[in-house]
Structure formats: structure tokens, C-alpha cells
Amino acid sequence: MNPPNLSESIPHLLELHRLKNQTVQLGAWPVRVSEHLRFVGILEGKFNWQIEGVPYILYPNDVVVLCPWHRIGNETATLEIGSFIEIALQTNKLEFEGSLQLGAWSALAEIDQRIIGKLLSNGPLVISHFKTLNELLQTIESEAKNGAFGHQTRINQVIDQLFIETVRQLSQQQSQRRDFSQAFGELEKMLRDSLDHPWTVEEMATIVGMSTTAFTEKVKSYSGFSPINYLINIRIAEAMRQIRQTDKSLTDIALDMGFYSSQHFSTTFKKLTGYTPGQYRKAPRPPERE
């Protein structure tokens, strides 16, 4: 059987190739933009790559996951000896602030795609000793090569599995390598970067790498707030700044802070600050007592 024409049968699989390099090649591997959502799995050798300006030394079974805007390559453009496999995927949407829609070919639930988008856009992922992912990449390769019955379905399933395994591995690494305060600090940064995102506790817990119950308890003992109250606190603090420092309408501020209605925003704002947003904008600012 001839290898199938992938661009027809699996149009969202934009690139799939294995690169085997037996001599050092100067100028062959410059730092460049990934352009697509991309998985790179190292099979043999050792590569010194710059990924988003950070130097990494990659060994077999290390996997790199890149967003379209991430930059990767060798600082002196040298392609070192070894081999790796890469795939690039077309997505309906993958944006800087982390919204991801893979497309109809994926069976992943919407909330799962959202979490994946958040994790991916948070920075390039470099996962070491991740044999499972490399095996999955090779499965995609051989399915594509053989073009046996059902290969389209299989490949789509395996791609979904790539994402699932990546998130699980990340969660596990989180819980092994970081203590809670570090993990919470990273989560907090993600929250701030997209306050309008409809965050759920489940989503936050997954990002930190904990069950929802354990996460909620931990946030409480760490910060004194429940996760949702902590998030609301950040949202209202940012709203206070925007109300006073910008001319943005209160409705726009409410929406940008992730409140689904200005009424809901107003009630929450008043409950926390003692003022409605309108009062706060107009609040008299008494001069210093002389």
C-alpha cells in the first residue's frame, strides 16, 4: 500500500517528519519561529537549543511543545548529530493569552482544550525523560506511513492522547518539583494575564496539579481566601485601578474582569469595597488635612 496523501486525509497535520543528521551541519538550524503548534521529540544524540531565548541541552526522550510564536533553534545555527521527530498541527485558534480550539478532528472536551491552551501559552514546554510522548509521536509516524485501515481516526486519537499525556505529565512534575507557593505563584500570573477568562476551580487545580478538593484547602491555608475569592480579589483590585486611572466604561471594565453582567460586577464591587463602581469613580478625594 502506498503512503496516503496526508494533506488530503489529515489536513490539520501540517508537518510530520523525522530528521536524522549524521554530520555537524553549520548554518542548518538557526533560531526561528515555530509558526505552528509543534511537538518535537528527541530520538538520538544531544542538542543545544535556544528555546524562547533560554538555553537547553536536550537528550533522547526529551520533548518540546511549542506555540506558533515560540522561537527555537541553535544559537550558532548549527545542526548537531542526532535525530528527532516533529509534528506541526493546524488549530482553529491558539492565541497568546491561551484560548485554544483544536478543531472538529479532536475529541477533547472544550474545558480540556482550554486548560491545554493555558498551559501551552504559558511558555514553551520542555519535558525531559518523557518516553511515552516520543512513542506516541512514532505511532503517528508509522500510522501515516502505512496508511492502514482507520489510520485517520487512529492518528486523531493519538494526537488527542499526546495532549492528555502532556498535561498529566506536567501536573505530575508540578507536584513533584515545586512546592505549593511556587506553583500558586505561577497560577496567579496566569490568572492576572487573563482576568476575563471564565476561570473555574477545576481548571485552576489542574494547572497547579492537584485535585479540586486538595487545591481549595491548600489555597485557603496559604492565602486566607478560597480560590474563587482570591480570584475575585485580583479582579476587583484591577477594576479599582481601571475605574480610577482610565476612562473605560464600567461595562467594559466589568467584562474585561470576567463578570458576565455589570449588575453582578456592581454587587461584588460594593460588597468588597463598600462603594459601587460608579460611586468609586466619582468618590470625593478629600485633600490632605492641614
Binding site: 508540578q174 507536584s175 513533584q176 518539583r177 515545586r178 512546592d179 505549593f180 507557593s181 511556587q182 506553583a183 497547579v208 496539579g209 492537584m210 486538595a214 491548600k218 491555608s221
Partner: peptide, 17 residues
């Protein structure tokens, strides 16, 4: 020291560690 060289993990408080 606790974070880099001690027992660390999400479920351990820094304090416990």
C-alpha cells in the same frame, strides 16, 4: 534549602518541609 535539596512537593507545606 527545603525547596532545592529537601523533601518538596505540592502537598507539603514549606513549613512541613
Amino acid at each position: 534549602f527545603a525547596q532545592q535539596l529537601g523533601a518538596s512537593g505540592l502537598f507539603l507545606d514549606l513549613e512541613q518541609s
